[in-house]
């Protein structure tokens, strides 16, 4: 079992070295992540497993540049994030990073089409509404482009979110418990869709989950425990949830 789970590649999409994250809780300082390293190659799909409170969301936030580490270095697409301010990190994400969230995070006032258009409009490809329509076709919602999120079921909302994650041809997609708010059948359909699209687009995928079955579909599985990432084989260590 190698100590450093990162598989060396020529030019990693994401490279984390000795990441630490501590938060202050009253008088005490609570260390969530400690000296964590990770390298993700282009086109790779990586699952990060962990129990509730293990710090999965914290790690995802750091990797996507939504948060800053207390210590350590992180680079995205070859750019060290520590040298960028919040706006710089946002600009780096624009058009290159897609997100799928557990609670969908669709804007309630925008239609399905408008929600999918959102990342395009924030990227240099503003105005390509046909692309957004195509993606909604591909997730099977071509007939419902004008519906508001509240007029869609949970599974449909997550499919809109998946179309939104891929619409700008991102190089990297982060998925945070994408099936967490869905029933098992719907969840399975959504996951099939996510992996199919990911494969077709050749996108790098980082998936955070506590579902071993879901994790198994990734190229590589890592477990987050005690602030550290370790390689992990769900097939060997048994199915089920973290």
């Amino acid at each position: 079992m190698p100590q450093t789970p990162g598989v060396p590649h020529a030019s990693p999409v994401l490279l984390a070295e000795k990441l630490s994250k501590a938060v202050r809780s009253g008088e005490r300082s609570l260390t969530i992540l400690k000296d964590l390293s990770l390298s993700v190659a282009q086109g790779e799909s990586v699952a990060i497993l962990g129990k509730s409170g293990a710090g999965k969301s914290t790690l995802l936030g750091l990797l996507a540049g939504l948060d800053t580490p207390s210590d350590g270095e992180l680079s995205l697409f070859g750019h060290p994030l520590s040298r960028l301010d919040e706006d710089g990190r946002a600009a780096l994400r624009a058009g290159r990073v897609g997100f799928v969230f557990q609670n969908f995070q669709l804007l309630p006032t925008l239609s399905a089409l408008e929600n999918v258009l959102l990342p395009l409009e924030l990227s240099p490809r503003a105005g390509e509404s046909q692309t957004a329509r195509d993606w909604l076709e591909r997730v099977g919602l071509g007939e419902r482009i004008d519906h508001l999120p509240k007029q869609l079921s949970g599974g449909e909302q997550q499919r809109v979110a998946i179309a939104r994650a891929f619409v700008a041809d991102p190089e990297l997609v982060f998925a945070d418990e994408p099936t967490g708010n869905l029933d098992p059948d719907t969840g399975a359909q959504v996951i099939d869709l996510l992996f199919t699209l990911n494969r077709e687009a050749g996108t790098t995928l980082i998936l955070v989950t506590h579902d071993h079955a879901l994790a198994r579909r990734c190229d590589r599985c890592l477990r987050l425990a005690a602030g550290q990432l370790n390689a992990f084989d769900p097939a060997v260590e048994g199915g089920g949830d973290e």
């Binding site: 939504l66 706006d87 946002a90 600009a91 994400r93 924030l122």
Partner: peptide, 16 residues
């Protein structure tokens, strides 16, 4: 605030 956070996530700047 949620909308703003999401836009931020997709790469919108503070100014935007």
């Amino acid at each position: 605030l949620d909308t703003a956070a999401l836009l931020r996530c997709f790469g919108a700047s503070q100014y935007q």
